[in-house]
Design a protein around this nucleic acid. Structure first.
Lengths: 356, 356
DNA sequence: CTGTTAGCGCTTTCAG
DNA sequence: CTGAAAGCGCTAACAG
């Protein structure tokens, strides 16, 4: 029923091989012949059979992008940038190069992460870009390392974006490259900003435990505190939860219950900060008059919430684009396969000196 | 190098056919044999070759989800819900059913929409879910109709989510179903709310022209005005632009320049409303004291901006999930293939009676 | 520059 | 319930 390469070849009065060649543009074909083939393709509305060509060529034009939460712009921005780089036609006016960049939503679940990787392996994906922080569970790290090793063996290029190479400081999975963010430095600078304003009792609403992103941001926070000579037990002033508004809301109430003397709350990211702000408002506290709040990521809405959120900007789009280009082999792999992108403090209206 | 079905068969001492049967679980196999095969699969770390099986079976386990802007939670929420339904294993403990739901970001570009559809057709996708409003350009409608027709002929199920069937009230493309939102009704109720508060001069920051979503929301707005006896030329109080914060910002300034007497601004969606709020604040106007602002969609951040945004809630997750289930044949197609989901007015703090 | 010839790895009748 | 055999539609040497 559907038209095949052979049908096109018959109509163009050439061999199937020739049709394949003009379609893939990777082999010299006489201009006249090419045109005749192209005309036949157009006339017959021919669409290449992806599976068949993938089978024969032992590689497909599918590129997977894994994200933890597709409804979160943090991932959407990275994925969009990566996808647009990957979908971009190759430099010269070639017919090939058109890759199908697809994003897969793991929902933050380690099992689904592995499942998607298997599905992508099954499709013989040309490359895989994995975004967002990783789970630091030994079993999962082992499973991921094994899976990525197999993917690499099968010829799939693996690039991490916003995630450190796995395992953190171990033998390492055979990835092409890793683009990471300076979460630790960003966290440190954010807290230094608060300390400079005069804050001493700072609550911290952390992300889910065992996530690299969570740990690094928290480490930066604590390093700043330590450097300022604040040595008291910080665990009491820290509460872990998912990267959601709701978690920020609950955690803030809880932290304030534990220590009503807090003058500032630092959230694991902007979304969590939104929940913190809401909780504070419900308590009748003014921001930053009564208490300061800070986020992380600088998502587009951060500047619009009331008051504009002090946060740390991460070059999400740039990182995603870079990961996409590396996955396509269009950008040199950074030295050591590792590139860290800066995190910039953005001091806005939600932080101010504590009210004596 | 990589292990094939035949390798597994050899190790399990059965024929390749048998291995295929246990893997697909669609044919009776003796329990003992099945177990032997499964063990061999596990021991050899075998992963099915997707392209080969898709070629042989003439269908793949790929399902595409098209979105206009992956960085926008409006799409992220729908896509996430759809993807999670599609990725969900089938009811019974079957091995099959595991579909690879992938989201494709068109960036709102008609060409890329068509390109992705072709790529998906090339992959012999099992189904395609297209989210978001459609472009009402005759040429694009024709191209889409043709493309969707070919997809359907090739056995791909097409479901629209948040988009009316194409062409609007014409012969219609052969889609399985369309889930739409009551954008018109929502728009009408939102403006009725403003009118009830006493507003008479309302600026409208519309979305991109020629988009169904834009048109329907605007129609609802104008219907409410007409019903209230406001007959003056509304074009002067309307300005089109992309669904971005920046557009909301610029358009609001422009509308206020055209008519400084505006007492309210209605935005095409929450993101645009954010830009409108920012512009108003820069002008030193208080919301809602000096001027009211309303959005549309009720994205998660809407309640957190200052002041909390009056908007219209759309059941995005529910619509996406439903579209996903229909695409998988797990939910009955609604009567006439068309289901409209309600839009609920959410009156919050950003709207109030005009200040005399 | 173009045609011929083998498969790629799997599914699927069709027989047992 | 299981095996044998015939392709699915395309690409990739290899000749010409």
């Amino acid at each position: 029923m559907t038209v095949t390469l052979a049908d096109v070849a018959a109509r163009a009065r050439v061999s199937p091989a020739t049709v394949s060649r003009v379609l893939n543009g990777n082999y010299p074909v006489a201009a006249a012949t090419r045109e005749r083939v192209l005309r036949a393709v157009a006339e017959m509305d021919y669409v290449l059979n992806g599976p068949a060509s993938a089978l024969a060529a032992a590689t497909s034009d599918l590129v997977g992008i894994l994200v933890n939460d597709i409804a979160d712009p943090f991932f959407g921005i990275m994925a969009g940038a990566a996808q647009s780089e990957i979908g971009r036609p190759e430099g010269s006016g070639r017919a090939g190069g058109a890759k199908l960049a697809v994003v897969c939503n793991t929902g933050g679940s380690p099992e689904r992460e592995l499942t998607y990787l298997t599905l992508l392996q099954r499709q013989r994906a040309a490359a895989v870009v994995i975004t967002g922080g990783a789970l630091e569970d030994p079993a999962h790290i082992a499973a991921m390392t094994a899976k990525l090793t197999r993917l690499a063996q099968a010829g799939t290029t693996v690039v991490l974006c916003g995630r450190p190479p796995l395992p953190a400081g171990g033998p390492g999975a055979p990835i092409e490259a890793a683009i990471t963010f300076d979460n630790r430095g960003g966290g440190r600078r954010l807290t230094e900003h608060l300390l400079a304003l005069g804050h001493r009792r700072i609550g911290y609403v952390a992300g889910p435990p065992e996530r690299t992103t969570t740990r690094h941001r928290l480490e930066g926070h604590r390093a700043a505190l330590r450097a300022a000579g604040i040595t008291e037990d910080q665990d009491r002033l820290t509460r872990h939860g998912p990267y959601t508004r709701r978690s920020g809301h609950e955690a803030t109430l809880e932290l304030l219950r534990r220590d009503p003397g807090l003058t500032a709350v630092v959230a694991a990211n902007d979304t969590v900060a939104l929940g913190a702000c809401a909780a504070l408002r419900e308590l009748g506290l003014r921001i930053p008059g009564d208490i300061s709040v800070a986020g992380f990521d600088d998502l587009p809405f951060a500047v619009d919430v009331g008051p504009a959120l002090t946060t740390v900007r991460l070059p999400l789009a740039e990182a995603g684009a870079r990961a996409g280009r590396i996955a396509m082999g269009r950008e040199a792999v950074p030295p050591g396969g590792l590139a860290t992108m800066g995190a910039t403090l953005l001091a806005r209206a939600s932080t101010a000196a504590p009210h004596d």
